Simulated scan of single mutants.
Amino acid sequence: MTETLAAAYGADLAVTHILVVSELNQSRAFWVDVLGAEIYREYGGTSLVLRFGGSWLLLVTGGPPTVDKPDTTFAAPPDPTRVSHALTLRVADCLGVYEILRARGAVFLAPPHDWGGEIRCFTRDPDGHLIEFSQAG
């Protein structure tokens, strides 16, 4: 086959981030009501596709292996202080985002910090997934 990788991907290639959550309704409320994501599609009470910041986010509840991933179990993070995956959202006004999201119920690890070339702050979703808000300085 002489098809290039770009051709095999197609013009509509999109990256979807998958977060395994312990309670879908609680996570939906956080991502939609607090952070402002838009619901695109729901699947049987176990998964939810969101449009957020020009990307796709798939929230799924944990589950056992399946035919297409026979040795892989999905589980929400057991310890929110140990991070193996994080989302960074590049924003125009980190302090403004911080104030708005705090008013909506988001709990931040610390207020925004100015590192000179970047201002950033971090929050977690209900399962402990780390979310960074970053403003170029």
Rank of each mutant, 00 (worst) to 15 (best):
E42V: 03
A136F: 13
K69I: 01
A110T: 13
G36Q: 02
P80D: 07
A75Y: 09
D71G: 06
F108G: 00
Y40S: 10
Y40D: 14
A106L: 00
P126K: 03
S47A: 15
L5E: 04
F30M: 04
L95T: 04
Q26Y: 05
G96P: 05
L13S: 06
D127S: 15
D79V: 06
L89W: 12
Y40M: 07
T46R: 03
R104M: 00
T4D: 00
L57F: 12
E3P: 02
T73W: 07
L101I: 12
C94Y: 13
R28E: 12
R51T: 02
V15A: 10
S27A: 15
L50Y: 06
A8G: 13
A92Y: 02
G117H: 14
F108H: 03
G62C: 06
V83C: 14
A7G: 01
N25Q: 15
A76R: 04
E132W: 05
D114L: 02
E38C: 00
G36F: 03
V32Y: 07
R120V: 06
G44V: 09
V60F: 08
R28Y: 02
Y40R: 11
G63T: 13
G53M: 08
A7W: 00
R124V: 01
G116D: 06
G10P: 05
L13P: 01
A37L: 12
L95A: 05
D68Q: 07
H129K: 00
A103T: 07
Y43T: 05
L130A: 10
R28T: 04
P65K: 05
G96A: 11
L59P: 01
L13I: 09
L24M: 10
P65H: 10
P77E: 04
S47Q: 12
V32H: 07
D12V: 12
P64T: 04
T81F: 03
A103S: 10
D12G: 11
Y43I: 00
A6V: 11
D12E: 15
V20W: 03
A8W: 11
V97I: 14
D125I: 04
T66G: 01
V49I: 13
D125M: 08
V67Q: 13
C121L: 07
F30D: 04
L13N: 08
S27V: 08
A106G: 02
D127T: 12
G96R: 09
F108V: 04
V91N: 03
V34D: 03
E42A: 10
T123I: 08
L89F: 15
T123Q: 10
